[in-house]
Amino acid sequence: NSLAEAKVLANRELDKYGVSDYYKNLINNAKTVEGVKALIDEILA
């Protein structure tokens, strides 16, 4: 998966839960796919 794909999928996942734009910005600023995954795990914990 590319970083861009990971960000799109992460933001879709956040949308399902009604997560605020603050967290979407964190996702969009992530530098690695692993970073995106770690943020998602933390946000949805």
Rank of each mutant, 00 (worst) to 15 (best):
N29V: 07
K16G: 05
N28F: 11
K16W: 04
L14D: 00
V19Y: 15
I40H: 04
A10T: 01
L26D: 02
D41Y: 14
E5H: 11
E13V: 15
Y23P: 00
E42T: 11
E34D: 08
K24F: 05
K37A: 08
A10P: 00
S20E: 06
R12Y: 11
E42M: 15
A4V: 08
L3Y: 01
A4H: 12
D15N: 06
R12A: 14
L44A: 05
L14S: 05
K31A: 12
T32I: 01
L26W: 08
S20Q: 07
R12I: 14
A38F: 12
K16I: 06
V36F: 03
L44T: 06
V33M: 08
T32D: 06
L26Q: 05
S2T: 12
Y17D: 02
D15F: 09
K37S: 04
S2E: 13
E34G: 06
N11G: 07
Y22Q: 07
L9D: 07
G18V: 06
L39Q: 02
D41E: 13
S2I: 09
E34I: 05
N11R: 12
K31T: 15
K16F: 07
L9I: 13
N28A: 11
N25T: 14
A45K: 14
V36P: 00
I27Q: 00
E42H: 14
V33Q: 04
E5T: 09
V8Y: 14
A10D: 00
K37C: 04
L9E: 08
R12P: 01
K7W: 02
K31S: 13
E13H: 10
K7C: 03
N28E: 11
A6K: 03
G35Y: 11
D21C: 13
V36M: 03
E5R: 13
N25R: 12
G18I: 07
E42V: 12
S2R: 11
L3H: 00
E42L: 13
L3D: 01
I43T: 02
N29G: 10
G18C: 06
L14C: 04
N29E: 14
D21M: 13
A38M: 12
L14F: 04
A30P: 00
V36W: 01
A4D: 12
N28Q: 10
L3V: 04
A4K: 10
A10M: 02
E5Q: 12
A45F: 13
L26H: 03
V36S: 00
N28S: 08
L14I: 08
G18E: 06
Y22A: 08
V19T: 06
E34K: 05
R12F: 10
I43N: 00
L26F: 05
T32L: 02
N29L: 11
R12G: 05
K24M: 06
E5N: 10
E42W: 15
N29K: 10
Y23N: 03
L44R: 13
G18N: 10
Y23K: 02
S20N: 08
G35W: 08
A4I: 08
L3K: 00
G18K: 09
I40Y: 11
V33P: 04
N25M: 13
Y22T: 07
T32R: 02
A10S: 01
A30K: 03
G35E: 15
N1T: 13
